[in-house]
Design a binder for these strands. Structure first.
Lengths: 149, 149
DNA sequence: TTTAATGCAAACTATTTGCATCACC
DNA sequence: GGTGATGCAAATAGTTTGCATTAAA
């Protein structure tokens, strides 16, 4: 088996340490650096590919043009704040009946779905009490939905 | 204004001639060719950018890694057959209550959503009567949903 | 003449791969 | 020694831009 799985391990640790969060390869790479693990970008890429195959992470398509990853949990959808960039996980339970209706309507046998919601999070709806703005998807957040992980 | 809007016009014609369909730049480029209009890829790119700004087309993010376009109609979501690649439009009405629930649940003010469904279309659910399989998103289809355009 | 459209080539971004090397069993 | 992990560099894929040219008002 693997004799030197340092990067993969570090990546898993990193991702698990942050609660729900989605990561681009670039974010993973640079965060890894700031945790003291130097690694080539391609190594991060390959480690993530492996983690994906092994089922530890899942590929997430936001509308970012780049691939994001998240730790594998039960299926859920994503809600992104257009202001601060925070990505929250939302349960997809509320979608169930909509999907059922769509199956009837279209005759498709729907196997999977991907929902990306865009909006404004609670914090950013405030008149900015102490300038809570950010621009990357670097929030520690995800706390909005407790029943997910 | 434009003095020579040939490509843009041809593109609009092409897209309108096909009912609902989503197009990648590559598809647009090659289809344009087979309709007899030679154009550089970058010209197609720019023409589409213009059509988008002018509101004639809309950018669609499937999970394809490439950008797709569709003629602007009322907001709807997309359902892709995993077998034949056909992309159908589905009304997003059934989503309304789900989104409402999610707003309450998360506190987000949801402004927009994007839903991509994956499944098997009616044709491909059959035992393949006369081998109806394709692999690109080249269906003339979209007829499944009448109330869309 | 002025302006937008076009073609060609090249830059860019993000991802992916080839290959030699390295660490660990 | 053998196998997988890693780093470095380069290839890809898709998109986008710079620039000179062309066509129409």
């Amino acid at each position: 088996m693997g004799r030197r799985a340092k990067i993969g391990t570090a990546l898993k640790g990193l991702m698990n340490a942050r609660g729900h969060h989605t990561w681009s390869l670039e974010e993973l790479h640079s965060e890894l650096g700031s945790v003291g693990v130097r690694a080539d970008f391609s190594s991060v890429f390959r480690a993530m590919a492996k983690l994906e195959v092994d089922g530890h992470v899942r590929r997430v398509e936001l509308d970012d043009a780049r691939t994001h990853f998240e730790v594998t949990t039960e299926h859920h959808d994503h809600l992104r704040c257009a202001t601060c960039g925070e990505v929250a996980a939302v349960p997809c339970g509320p979608m169930a009946s909509a999907i059922e209706q769509l199956e009837i309507l279209t005759g498709f046998d729907i196997a999977d779905h991907r929902l990306v919601l865009t909006g404004t999070c609670l914090k950013c709806q405030q008149p900015a009490p102490q300038s809570e703005q950010r621009s990357g998807a670097t929030a520690a957040g995800g706390s909005l939905v407790g029943g997910i992980a």
